[in-house]
Simulated scan of single mutants.
Amino acid sequence: MKQRLDDQAQSRDKKRISIRFCGGCNPQIDRGVIAGQLRASLTGRGYEVVFNQYDADVIIYLSGCTADCANRYSQDIGNTPCIIINGNNVNSTVVKDCELAAYAADKVLNYLSDD
């Protein structure tokens, strides 16, 4: 029990990145693959990655198409920095499908390095 509490306390000390998904009705990209790549990249750098939560230092909205439903139908997050992936765009920049995760991870790291 003590180890579990220690692990929970340690994870709260890490910067938290949340990946929020759209409903997936018209995917032009493989959201699961991209989320997995983001998670591997960011956890490998010591960040905590959670899914579909608002309690985070950065939120990545991951929509399968340009309708951007992950962001459009989410609550107001105030001043929390966010990265918007919608189809093959990251923050309105067209990115090759195979580079989406790396490009978005770099954006996250840029936000977090400004802290």
Results as ranks from 00 to 15, higher is better:
Ser11Ala: 09
Lys2Asp: 11
Val49Leu: 04
Gly78Pro: 10
Val33His: 01
Ala101Glu: 10
Cys82Ser: 10
Val90Tyr: 00
Thr66Ser: 12
Leu5Val: 15
Val95Met: 04
Gln53Phe: 07
Asn86Trp: 05
Leu62Lys: 03
Ser74Met: 04
Asn71Pro: 03
Asn52His: 09
Asp7Asn: 14
Asp97Gln: 12
Asn91Asp: 15
Cys65Tyr: 02
Lys14Tyr: 09
Ala56Arg: 02
Ile59Leu: 05
Asn71Thr: 08
Asp114Glu: 11
Gln8Lys: 15
Glu99Val: 13
Leu112Tyr: 03
Arg16Val: 15
Ile84His: 02
Gly46Met: 08
Tyr61Asp: 12
Leu62Glu: 00
Asp115Tyr: 08
Val94Pro: 01
Ser74Gln: 08
Arg20Gln: 09
Pro81Gln: 11
Gly23Trp: 13
Tyr103Asp: 01
Gln3Ile: 14
Ser18Asn: 13
Met1Pro: 08
Leu112Gln: 01
Ala104Lys: 01
Asp114Gly: 12
Leu42Val: 04
Ser11Gly: 08
Asp7Tyr: 11
Val49Phe: 07
Val58Glu: 02
Arg31Glu: 07
Asp57Leu: 08
Leu100Trp: 09
Gln53Ser: 15
Ser41Thr: 15
Asp115Glu: 08
Val95Gln: 04
Thr93Gln: 14
Val33Tyr: 01
Phe21Ala: 03
Val49Cys: 04
Asp13Phe: 13
Asn86Ala: 10
Asp57Pro: 09
Ile60Met: 06
Tyr54Lys: 10
Gln8Phe: 15
Asp76Glu: 14
Thr80Leu: 07
Tyr111Gln: 14
Cys22Ala: 05
Tyr103Met: 12
Leu42Tyr: 09
Pro81Ser: 01
Cys69Met: 05
Leu62Val: 09
Pro27Leu: 04
Phe51Pro: 02
